[in-house]
Amino acid sequence: MSAGPYNYSYIFKYIIIGDMGVGKSCLLHQFTEKKFMADCPHTIGVEFGTRIIEVSGQKIKLQIWDTAGQERFRAVTRSYYRGAAGALMVYDITRRSTYNHLSSWLTDTRNLTNPSTVIFLIGNKCDLDAQRDVTYEEAKQFADENGLMFVEASAKTGENVEEAFLETAKKIYQSIQDGRLDLNAAESGVQHKPSQPGRNTLVNDQQVNKDTCAC
């Protein structure tokens, strides 16, 4: 039996942040279920999703925390930034206010995560081009100025959704390879788990869980 080719070797923690109604939960749903959730209720809390992806032949388990966007929860959702390896910062291209608030979201992200946390800016709802309120160029410039990765995506059509999640993972994986991201740091947002076949893996996995559940 070959050594567990379906095991994942890393766990990356992601957070999705941004104003209320920009489509954070829909992006998560599109990514994990490949479906558009038409009547998505407002997230009251923090939703949780997972998917295993492959980057450079490595299986990586993404643990995605989708946060409530309502302003009144802002103080509480700040608790969830800690230990994120990737942050997907979302605005709605048809609502300028959601774009205007980005600097505040960015400040929070910078303050509450590691320097190595990969921040990916997503302009959601790009299927609604007729109602566009923020140009691609403007947002691209904002992203460049702040060193963010950027795409316009649509949780409805699925356009660029996969890409945003995967590119973020690639960047994180690169950071690991380059040694910029220290796996041993407590809040790197990445757990490494050497693959082992059979039941040992189960035990390993539980130890990993045990270590991280001490929060």
């Binding site: 039941r199 893996t201 189960l202 996995d205 539980q206």
Partner: peptide
């Protein structure tokens, strides 16, 4: 008690997934 609790959490064991 660790393995037992983890299993009781309903988490899918990775070995099972494979």
């Amino acid at each position: 008690s660790v393995p037992r609790q983890s299993i009781a959490k309903g988490a899918t064991p990775i070995a099972a997934r494979e």
